[in-house]
Design a protein around this nucleic acid. Structure first.
Lengths: 357, 357
DNA sequence: ACGCCGCGTGTTAGCGATAACTTCCAGGCC
DNA sequence: GGCCTGGAAGTTATCGCTAACACGCGGCGT
């Protein structure tokens, strides 16, 4: 009784069939709609004209059967996967929310082109890029956190697939790049403070490690900052800052004890914004009356501080959008292989004010 | 002269061939090695024994030609994509670094099983799950940020594919779930403070929105917290806290002005840790002499504060690892469809101390 | 009236793997 | 010597879809 035939039949099903959902195929749909498979395919792709009545019947059968094209079969036949590979950095010294914002923007934008996103981490290195390209896992590749002397550039160029870089390496030949115009951003920060009458300012930059590995945006921001400071006759000092309380205290000790203390700070280091404000408060420095603070960070971070910060946006969402768009254009055959820099937008929020004599 | 034949020939190449890398196929390898395609396949999959000499010749040809199996073809023939889908939340009210840590851990672990990760965002909803499952884009699905009354559960159950949830919904039948044991964590926090002599403590929880939408971890933590407080005879108050300065100030105003002010705080809200410490400092409360602070957050966050915080880990990396492992087991046919809760680990770092009478 | 055009569809040859079925051969056993 | 066994490798059907090619038919120009 315990081992009835029915029970046995169920139990001896091989494990692998547990997860083998019987799928509806294009042939099923064609049969149901009384047309040929290719007609169904063409209805879906729109690559040739189909009469209104046929189109309707096909769509009806598709819905009724719940048909979804098999991605593998489609990729095999069309050599298009409808997948974008996105390589995210593994660094702990960059701002994680910004990365995440970029990632989600990329996924959302990819979906709007009917594509999905395959996530790779930078620690797979060039080998990972080869793997994804050569095994036809993705149609195009987007790479974040590009360094000036980016070691992956030669590989990327040889992949035979569209590539979009977020960031600007030294050698951009045949490569599509997008980024914020950090040079202009650095320049705008100085101008903003100079316009308010500041003559002694400082840049608190990212951790020394960031500069040392030649991350391109840090250097470009610095260049814009220093150049414009020189042009405007503003005394400007730059200090890299490790993102810890001790690092920050050292920096402030120095900047505030100078013969002519700084009256304006430009902070290109998201991680220390919160600590910086508490530390300034602790030292009795009011923002902006005693010292102006101008940040480079996403708007929500700027707004979430004890004093809403004037800031230059990091347009992560916009960059994600743009990166996908460029990849799609390349896939469409329109090669715009150049560097696209988004103009910075500076929003004054009250943490910057005129110098009080 | 300007339009030499060569130049013309280059220019009229149709756009679509630009990115059509001629790929090495299994047949190429077989030919080069003097064996049949299936032999190459078997060498790669190890699904039947191959003599040492043939294996070597095949491997040699593979390397020489730089062969990589075409993912689409492989998926079609084997009905295995070697891809895991990962659904990440789109909420702004949860801790982004924790999510990111989880994501990268998942990718890394998936790679160690020779799988890739397809990234989906929760805002695609159940439709997105259907899409990925029915079009055979992924073999299994991992879903983060599960709510108690999780609306996606029925869909997930009907997908016909392995599913792993991060978090614990009310109805876990036939579903694999992993999470931190938040109930135990809440309990441990109370015990830690009670052991130090605290008799008046408070839980500063996540934003009210988190409780309202029934996020399962928040409720479980709260339950453990309150239960153990009752057991230990500790006076315990709970306050949800919107992650802004104003929200935090309101909470502190209340807690510190009580007839018997709290001597210990449990903070289950990463976003306000920094602000909380500055605010306490501003009010002249020393940590831990005047008030103990115990956080629930990743260790690096706990260490990066002005006072290194005693904390209960959020084991994001471990959870990612485990989620992938469970998915793989299901794919292997061993269904362990139950709830796996990781025991909490509390690390004392100096922000908690005995009550001073 | 003839042929040509172009629209709407059907037919079918791949795409590049996998794996079920064969085949071949060398030993061992009776 | 015939027969069975089992290891090693070849043959080929198949996976589901796309797109090149083929076809019939009605209208139109000459």
């Amino acid at each position: 009784m315990l081992s009835s035939p029915l029970w046995t039949a169920t139990a001896i099903l091989p494990a692998r069939t547990y997860y083998d959902p019987r799928m509806v195929t294009i042939a099923d749909v064609a049969r149901a709609a009384g047309v040929s498979p290719s007609t169904v395919s063409y209805v879906l792709s729109g690559k040739r004209s189909i009469s209104e009545t046929t189109r309707r019947r096909v769509h009806h059968s598709i819905r009724k059967l719940g048909y979804r094209p098999n991605a593998g079969a489609r990729a095999l036949a069309s050599s298009r996967t409808n997948v974008l590979a996105l390589v995210v950095p593994m660094r702990t010294d960059l701002n994680v929310p910004v990365v995440m914002q970029f990632v989600t923007a990329t996924v959302a934008e990819a979906r709007s082109y009917d594509h999905d996103v395959l996530l790779l981490t930078a620690d797979e290195g060039p080998e990972g890029l080869h793997r994804v390209a050569a095994s036809a896992l993705a149609d195009a590749i987007i790479v974040m956190d590009v360094e000036a002397a980016e070691p992956r550039v030669p590989v990327l160029r040889s992949l035979g697939r569209p590539v979009v870089l977020i960031g600007v390496p030294d050698d951009t030949r045949d490569l599509a790049c997008v980024d914020l115009d950090f040079t202009a951003a650095g320049s705008d920060c100085v101008s903003h403070l100079a316009d308010l009458g500041h003559r002694d300012i400082a840049l608190i930059g990212p951790s020394p490690a960031v500069y040392e590995r030649g991350t391109s945006y840090a250097g470009r921001f610095l260049r814009g900052f220093e150049q414009t400071a020189a042009d405007r006759g503003v005394e400007a000092e730059t200090m890299a800052c490790v993102p810890t309380y001790d690092g920050l205290r050292d920096v402030l000790d120095h900047l505030l004890s100078r013969r002519r203390p700084v009256t304006g700070l430009v902070v290109h280091n998201e991680a220390i914004l919160g600590p910086l404000l508490s530390e300034l408060a602790k030292r009795g420095k009011r923002v902006p009356q005693d010292i102006s603070v101008l940040a480079v960070c996403p708007p929500d971070l700027a707004e979430a501080q004890s004093v809403p910060l004037s800031s230059v946006d990091i347009p992560a969402t916009e960059l994600g959008r743009l990166a996908v768009e460029l990849a799609m254009h390349q896939l469409g055959g329109l090669a715009e292989l150049d560097v696209k820099l988004l103009p910075p937008r500076l929003t004054a929020r009250g943490s910057t004010g005129p110098v009080v004599a």
